[in-house]
């Protein structure tokens, strides 16, 4: 099983994993920033307030980073393994989820 997950990934796959992981982390960082320390620059679309920035900046970063890395790493036949990129993605997801949940008042429970 260990060997199976050591399958090499191409530069194109590495590019999309890196771009996605970074943008997911950005959502995790920008959420508490808007909730606890509202910044004007996060208001991209006034009717939606800071929510628009928390959506806009990570999505923009995802697209730009993916395009940039696609052209930088795209020709490489081997950049990491399936196991490595899944670990990076899951780590970014866990960290972002933990930050978002911690920044919202889940405790104490309402009962």
């Amino acid at each position: 099983m260990e060997k199976a997950y050591s399958v090499k990934t191409t530069g194109k796959v590495a590019a999309v994993f890196i771009a996605t992981s970074v943008s997911i982390l950005m959502v995790g960082v920008l959420t508490p920033l808007w909730v606890h320390l509202p910044q004007k620059w996060l208001v991209v679309y006034t009717p939606a307030a800071g929510y628009s920035g928390v959506f806009f900046y990570p999505t923009l970063a995802w697209a730009v980073l993916w395009a940039g890395l696609y052209f930088t790493l795209g020709r490489k036949e081997s950049v990491g393994t399936v196991k490595r990129w899944m670990t990076v993605f899951l780590a970014s997801l866990i960290v972002a989820t933990a930050i978002i949940m911690a920044s919202l008042p889940w405790m104490p429970f309402p009962w």
């Binding site: 771009a19 997911i24 929510y51 928390v54 995802w62 997801l93 989820t97 978002i100 919202l104 889940w106």
Partner: peptide, 20 residues
């Protein structure tokens, strides 16, 4: 808060994830 806000912000992860 926190339920609706959790939906708002965690839902933003979806676009990148589905794109991946």
């Amino acid at each position: 808060s926190p339920m609706f806000e959790t939906m708002e912000y965690m839902g933003l992860l979806g676009t990148m994830w589905a794109g991946l």
